[in-house]
């Protein structure tokens, strides 16, 4: 069974003043343990695809299936990491990490300890009692990631998770997340503006056209599995692919 199946999907946002065609005729299947990146010009509907997969919005027409079922907010398989960290300012870091567990009534001691292990790993353990406003953007983003991972989701949806970080942290975090996803055998969809980032982590890259978003190209990557994202970036193959995707997006941007 595929983790995600999207068939003939169309999405139109309605408002009293106008309607916005965000996505047209999207067909996409994502298999278990696949890492898929979505790139495309701003406003082409990348976030919209993720919202559809979690069930935050319903398709105008067509079908979205996650693990063979229509996405259901109450009982979904996704861990959604938003474009913004969305930490609750009044909660400490520790309480923020437990937020998802609390809502899903999964806040067992074991789960909490597992989440705390992750904070150790990411050097956040000394900030557990602090509030989000006392942390840097990079740290906050890591907290948001741990909050997502604490739920042990089947499918990770990452909406530009690294965009708020400095370059150095970004590369580090890329390697870390890549590792976690591979060792935990998760399926992941990454939305990003950074083509290199997409190339360094993905098994497949989907290039969307300018709005209304259509699938313009799909690139399947065949790097040797023991390369880290950082090592991948340095290969000749990565550079060539970068040029191809860059050109594709550039052509789309001209249409806007």
């Amino acid at each position: 069974m595929s983790v995600v199946e999207i068939k003939n999907l169309n999405l139109i946002y309605q408002s009293t003043k106008s309607e916005t065609e965000a996505l047209t005729d999207i067909n996409l299947t994502i298999e278990k343990e696949e890492f898929v990146s979505i790139v495309g010009p701003s406003g082409c509907g990348k976030t919209t695809i993720l919202s559809l997969i979690t069930g935050l919005i319903k398709p105008t027409s067509g079908q979205v299936l996650v693990m063979g079922k229509t996405p259901n907010l109450k009982n979904n398989f996704c861990g959604y990491m938003f474009q913004r960290d969305n930490l609750l300012p009044w909660r400490t870091i520790e309480k923020n990490i437990y937020f998802g567990l609390e809502l899903k009534k999964l806040a067992s001691k074991e789960r909490k300890e597992k989440a705390l292990d992750l904070t150790n790993k990411y050097g956040l353990s000394e900030f557990l009692k602090k509030h989000p406003s006392e942390l840097s953007g990079g740290m906050r983003q890591r907290v948001a990631l741990i909050r997502t991972l604490a739920l042990q989701p089947e499918l990770l949806l990452l909406d530009e998770p690294f965009s708020a970080l400095d370059y150095q942290t970004r590369l580090e975090l890329c390697d870390d997340i890549f590792n976690i996803i591979k060792t935990e055998q998760k399926t992941a969809i990454l939305v990003t503006h950074d083509i290199q980032e997409a190339i360094s982590m993905s098994d497949r890259i989907i290039v969307l056209s300018a709005r209304p978003g259509k699938i313009k190209a799909i690139h399947t990557l065949d790097f040797s599995p023991d390369l880290t994202p950082f090592e991948r970036r340095k290969t000749e193959k990565a550079k060539q692919l970068f040029d191809v995707i860059w050109q594709e997006i550039q052509n789309e941007k001209k249409k806007i």
Binding site: T54, G55, L56, K74, F82, L88
Partner: peptide, 15 residues
């Protein structure tokens, strides 16, 4: 209340 926070809670299955 921030709409994004509500979307987050919803995506986490909050009633």
């Amino acid at each position: 209340c921030d709409k994004q926070l509500i979307a987050l809670a919803k995506s986490l299955g909050a009633n």
